[in-house]
Design a protein around this nucleic acid. Structure first.
Lengths: 208, 208
DNA sequence: CAATGTATACCGGGTAGTGAATATACACAA
DNA sequence: TTGTGTATATTCACTACCCGGTATACATTG
């Protein structure tokens, strides 16, 4: 660590983060990351055992800041809990309007590593998504959703990850506004205890 | 075309389909496809200009059968339109219980080709998803959803692609049951003309 | 000295795509 | 019927390159 500015390891991680997010895991070579970090490949391999190791470390490093951002978006939004969750989607829509927006790194990585079920990066990705789900679930529980809290959180996760997938494909952020409305509707339905309100569906509480 | 059994081109396409779906686009080499098809690589390049060409042809070939399958699942389900759409999700859940299930090839391909915006395979993927959305929209219009038909179809698409993404990550098909319930709920809400039923959200008709 | 960190040069393996030649089938003319 | 031309279909061998990872030696610092 000869430069006091930023430890070498962090610089590598940051370079990897940018490149992985921009082009994907497989499309980026270790050489490219080393060059972007201003470091030789051998140095990179001193700090990380393998490329897979680096990928996993990258996702682990993104977990906390990502969750924190979602919490901030929630906190900053006005209105009841439905409106505040919808606010997350609207912030997401705003981000997605940037041409350089590249969707959810956790989801994309999980697609690229589909044939390596035990990969540590997949474990990190699952943990991240579960953390968000748990956070949402606790929010709904506090708001009085009762047994509906978890299934409701799972519905929101479906809309969230669905947004990432659909907008990545169509490049049309308005889907995230659609998702915001749908999320708000589902939350309002659950919190008003409106199960069985004229519909013949199995009920909002079933988780399968 | 010396063998009457199956034209070479179709055999290549079929081999590519299996391998691409199993391991992903980038993970499969042209050599592997040629070998699986029982053909030399040079022959493959006679029938397809490039690997990208083959990828695009592969997705185009999947468009029709995929849509047909969804329609069959819809037709075969019992109950009102909400229950029939939910039936699609439940069939999907059944498929996803197979350990070899690999999610949606259109979505996965779009992730792998994210840095090639004009790639013909992406065009094919978008067209496919739009066809499903249009089909759903027409169903809802026939059922009397009026102006809600399209936004409702988009909500279902979000749940559908969200299911693919989430189940691919967590390997937990029960999310598709959750999606089935959510879809049925959203459809029932729209068709009962229940806008403004106690909730303060922007309304089911806004598309953004 | 010993621990940590960096640099150069290299290896073995895999990749998309190609050049040149060959085999097959069918149309048409002698 | 035989011969010839031509488009289709297929093969083997090859190039040029990129990738993850490593052997080895050198530098810096406590």
């Amino acid at each position: 660590m000869k430069d006091g500015a930023q430890p070498t390891r962090e610089r590598i991680l940051q370079a990897a983060g940018k490149l992985f997010h921009r082009d994907g895991i497989r499309a980026i070579s270790v050489d490219a990351i080393a060059e972007k970090a201003g470091v030789t490949k051998r140095t990179l391999y001193y700090h990380f055992r393998s490329k897979d190791d680096l990928i996993a470390a990258h996702l682990q490093a993104r977990d906390e800041p990502n969750l924190t951002l979602f919490k901030r978006w929630f906190d900053e939004a006005e209105g009841d809990i439905a409106a505040k969750v919808a606010g997350i989607f609207r912030h997401l829509a705003q981000s997605a309007r940037d041409a350089k927006w590249k969707g959810c790194g956790f989801l994309r990585t999980s697609v690229e590593l589909i044939n390596l079920p035990g990969h540590p990066a997949l474990v990190a990705a699952r943990a991240h998504k579960k953390r968000i789900e748990d956070w949402l679930s606790s929010l709904f529980a506090e708001a009085g959703a009762g047994d509906d809290a978890l299934p409701l959180a799972r519905r929101i996760m479906l809309l969230l990850d669905g947004s990432f997938a659909v907008v990545l494909l169509h490049r049309d952020p308005s889907y995230m506004e659609t998702a915001a409305d749908a999320a708000a509707q589902l939350i309002a339905d659950s919190l008003s205890g409106a199960r069985g309100n004229g519909s013949d569906l199995p009920g909002a509480a079933s988780v399968g």
